[in-house]
Nucleic acid binder design. Structure first.
Length: 574
RNA sequence: CGGGGAGUAGCGCAGCCUGGUAGCGCACCUGCCUUGGGAGCAGGGGGUCGCAGGUUCAAAUCCUGUCUCCCCGACCA
């Protein structure tokens, strides 16, 4: 591609509304442009990277035996009613009506549609195992889209769905996808980790997330420093070994704590550690129960775990009015003593004695509090968020380290959730109906591109991993008005292209400085500089974007050596 | 949706407090000059100041409403 015939506008300055580096660089390199919140156009340079990732995904899906198809983006409400998700999904599902007032939605995921296809087409156990995938635009009306392609409302996703007659088959399908995902992200040049995850509202029994390690990641993950266990903090189990409850040694005492509302405030006011406090959270469930949740002062509530314990879909922190009403005190002074609510507590609380809680009265706390003696806990459970330093639940002696990650892929064992709802069954060898076991497997394509940039950049711009680079080689033609320079560049351009190399020829009449800056920004892995100086010496300069190393190529063999280099490096990624 | 911030040329910003000619840098166009790390000179194009209403002789500026965007939280590939 010739720069002068391409659509590629780089920005010298960073647009003010881009926060994370991948978003900034995608805007500065002209990969994407925003059309509305969370909705982007992929400009030519950006689309090339997207297509590269798609191609890797396609190759690995095919290799793993999955079959590509394409489902519609607009899907009828009827199907969603069958699974119950028309009601469950909420505002994230963008609903619309056609001219006849029939209801539809833009597909946020395609379990319903694929299950409908399979129940119509697949009648016999002989037709499974089957794994179908598509690469398609999804729409989720996210509450808060952000960070460019990292969390868009409209985004390109690869989604695959496996169907098996029994659980053993489903496990094999899951494992195949898991392995395929590892290959995909390795081939994309990403440093990632597969972690155990919560299944969220997709449902199902088990799942792993593929997390690209990055400071800007929206997810917190923990991993064991001595075994293989790694999990999203939403999911990570806390090791708790029940011991004897420590004995109470202090009487219940009321203390004045004027205007000390937060755990940090109270701890420093009373000159005690935060772990000596118990925090009392007043929460409301989606079935309208208001209850109190107790956690050690330095621990964080994990709402997903709480939901699982309560058997509900959602818990919300109670609003100020509710807190005031049930505790009789303003927010900041709630405590379990004398509280007329169901109290459930994290395991850690059962190992505490003589702790501090709010007294349900303004500017007042209790010290010397003990559960059992001063209040009753209905249920103890694992309710808190895992954190660095916690003991590993899977091995002896390991402790957690914590990371931030970008979720680029997620694999789920769905079991019968959708196949039962939509009655996707086959006849087995005995002529009996068997409900299909399903799995579903997603990859965020655009997010993977963004994640690759998060991991591969420096202060000058992007450093593309070769397999997903929009172009493999950039020729920087220093002075297009110099005939020797122009002819040499043109010849190299032609030679490389005919050898199948993807090359961007910077034939603009710009000064060298601008061209070098743009080359660094665009981050094409190999850069060949063609200038009068080199030509006089009969050589071209090859510079590697990743490490800045330079190599002098004799003119006569330049093309051939570049081709060999691209081929060799590409081979290393497969 | 709750909390915070911002809308002035494609991008980055000033002007607003104290009402009166819409401005700067980059980018873009023309010419000259220059060609190994974002040159220089000269000329030029581009704006319903987010939108609507109000106050006023006069509104980017003051008032009211509204929309959009960004950041923090819940959601997720």
């Amino acid at each position: 591609m010739r720069y002068t015939e391409y659509l590629l506008n780089t920005l010298k300055e960073t647009p003010a509304d881009a926060e994370v580096i991948s978003h900034q660089l995608m805007l500065r390199t002209g990969m994407i442009r925003k059309v509305a919140a969370g909705i982007y156009s992929y400009l030519p340079f950006g689309l090339r990277a997207v297509r590269k990732v798609e191609q890797i995904v396609r190759e690995e899906m095919d290799r793993a035996g999955a079959i590509e198809l394409l489902m519609p983006m607009v899907t009828p409400a009827d199907l969603w009613s069958e699974s119950g998700r028309w009601e469950q999904y909420g505002k994230e599902l963008l609903r619309l009506k056609d001219r006849k007032d029939t209801e539809f939605c833009l597909g946020p995921t395609h379990e319903e549609v694929i299950t409908d296809i399979v129940r119509r087409e697949v009648k016999s156990y002989r037709q499974v195992p089957l794994n179908l995938y598509q690469i398609q635009t999804k729409f989720r009306d996210e509450i808060r889209p952000r960070f460019g392609l990292m969390r868009g409302r409209e985004f390109i996703m690869k989604d695959a769905y496996s169907f098996d007659v029994d659980e053993a088959g489903a496990d094999i399908a899951y494992d195949k996808m898991y392995q395929a995902y590892r290959r995909i992200f390795e081939r994309c040049g990403l440093k990632f980790r597969a972690v155990e995850a919560d299944t969220g509202n997709i449902g199902g029994s088990a799942s792993h997330e593929f997390m690209v390690l990055a400071e800007s990641g929206e997810d917190a993950i923990v991993s064991c420093d001595s075994c293989e266990y790694a999990a999203n903090v939403e999911k990570a189990e806390i090791l708790f070994t029940a011991g004897a409850t420590p004995l109470a040694t202090h009487p219940l005492t009321e203390v004045s704590t004027p205007a000390q509302r937060s755990i940090a405030d109270v701890a420093s006011f009373l000159k005690i550690a935060q772990s000596q406090l118990v925090k009392t959270l007043i929460v409301k469930t989606d079935s309208d129960e208001t209850l109190a949740v107790l956690l050690r002062g330095d621990h964080e509530l994990n709402e997903i775990k709480l939901c699982r314990v309560l058997g509900c879909n959602e818990v919300l922190m109670a609003d100020d009015a509710t807190v005031t009403q049930v505790t009789g005190a303003p927010v900041g002074f709630a405590g379990p003593v004398g509280l007329k609510l169901r109290v459930i507590a994290d395991h850690a609380v059962s190992a505490m004695a003589d702790f501090v809680v709010g007294a349900n009265a303004v500017d007042t706390h209790y010290t010397g509090v003990n559960n059992g003696r001063d209040f009753a806990v209905a249920t103890f459970a694992d309710l808190r968020q895992a954190e660095a330093g916690d003991r590993c639940p899977r091995c002896d002696g390991g402790t957690f380290e914590s990371w931030r990650g970008i979720e680029v892929g997620h694999v789920f064992k769905l079991g019968h959730k959708y196949s039962r709802a939509l009655n996707a069954v086959v006849l087995d060898a005995d002529g009996k109906e068997r409900t299909l076991f399903m799995g579903c497997y997603g990859i965020g394509i655009g997010r993977s591109v963004a994640a690759a940039i998060e991991q591969n950049h420096d202060e000058n711009g992007i450093i593309w991993p070769l397999p997903i680079a929009p172009f493999q080689v950039m020729i920087t033609m220093l002075n297009p008005k110099d005939d020797a320079v122009r002819q040499t560049s043109e010849q190299l351009y032609t030679d490389l292209r005919s050898a199948g190399i993807e090359v961007l020829l910077d034939d603009r009449d710009e000064r060298p400085g601008s061209k070098f800056k743009d080359a660094d920004l665009l981050g094409i892995p190999l850069r060949v500089t063609v200038g009068g100086r080199g030509i006089k010496e009969g050589a071209l300069e090859l510079q590697v974007r990743a490490d800045g190393s330079k190599d002098s190529l004799p003119l006569a063999e330049a093309a051939q050596r570049i081709v060999a280099r691209v081929d060799a490096e590409l081979a290393a990624w497969r």
